[in-house]
């Protein structure tokens, strides 16, 4: 299986939101919320974006306090955290401001990315600290969660009003699955099998990739025709495991 990033409709929606965030009207509206159920490629998309732009990436912890959050930001920035909260906040503004200026000079986007933001989105102290950082530096803050962030933000109207863009990661459609198969699978796969992968995986990226690995492993041992590996060739073979039940899903022998 090839190793490459596949530009799906979800990653395109994220790119579009980042462009829109850059062109926002109100300078303080610099929050972006990315959410969706697990296995849709949120973290993969954000990992790639952070790697390409050299942004600051944090993973929120359930037990974070505002002070711990600031300490972790400073640790990521390789700055010895001062003792008082006031000095910590000052040091964050100084360091992030310098990195933001550097990114602007180099023509890159710079943002503070907080993954697993569901853990902190109902904690006013941490969210207000993130808002203050975003406001004072006009620095985009990207919150990645699994669906609770949007609901929790309704409790903080001052935060919700600063959310410039919401990106909800949706299940992959047939086009996306076809893109995955074309980009990652090293053997040719017939459209009927692609359609079955889409149906059996329910559009979940993780399951699609698992199915591609199985299809490729099986296909390498077959003498394939011009049309590629079809459902007929794989009839009765196990394709993947069902996420909900854990039961194996087989390619049907009779359609």
């Amino acid at each position: 299986m090839r190793t490459q990033f596949v530009n799906t409709s979800n990653s395109k929606a994220f790119d579009k939101a980042m462009v829109a965030l850059g062109k926002r009207g109100a300078s303080e509206a610099c929050l972006l919320v990315v959410d969706g159920i697990p296995g849709l490629g949120k973290t993969t998309t954000l990992n790639r974006w952070v790697a390409q732009n050299g942004c600051l990436y944090l993973r929120a912890k359930k037990t974070w306090s505002a002070s711990w959050f600031m300490k972790e930001v400073l640790n990521k920035l390789r700055v010895e955290p001062p003792h008082s909260k006031e000095k910590k906040f000052g040091a964050i503004l100084q360091e992030l401001g310098a990195r933001q200026a550097k990114a602007v000079r180099e023509g890159r986007q710079f943002a503070l990315v907080i993954d697993e933001a569901d853990h902190i989105s109902n904690r006013p102290e941490i969210m207000e600290t993130a808002r203050d950082i975003a406001d004072m530096l006009e620095l985009p803050v990207i919150l990645i969660g699994m669906g609770k962030v949007r609901d929790h933000l309704t409790r903080f109207p001052q935060m919700a009003s600063r959310v410039s863009q919401f990106v909800r990661f949706e299940k992959a459609n047939l086009d996306d699955v076809t893109k995955f198969v074309d980009a990652l699978c090293e053997i040719k796969v017939a459209p009927d099998l692609v359609k079955f992968i889409h149906q059996a995986s329910d559009g979940m990226n993780r399951e699609v990739i698992e199915a591609i690995a199985t299809v490729e492993r099986f296909g390498r041992m077959q003498d394939l025709g011009e049309g590629g590996l079809s459902m007929c060739d794989m009839a009765g073979e196990m394709l993947m495991n069902d996420r909900r039940s854990g039961e194996p899903i087989f390619v049907p022998e009779v359609i």
Binding site: T3, Q4, F5, T44, N47, R48, A51, Q52
Partner: peptide, 11 residues
């Protein structure tokens, strides 16, 4: 692992 680095870092 190396494949995950390639997927995230290459352009």
């Amino acid at each position: 692992d190396v494949p995950s680095l390639v997927a995230a870092a290459q352009n």
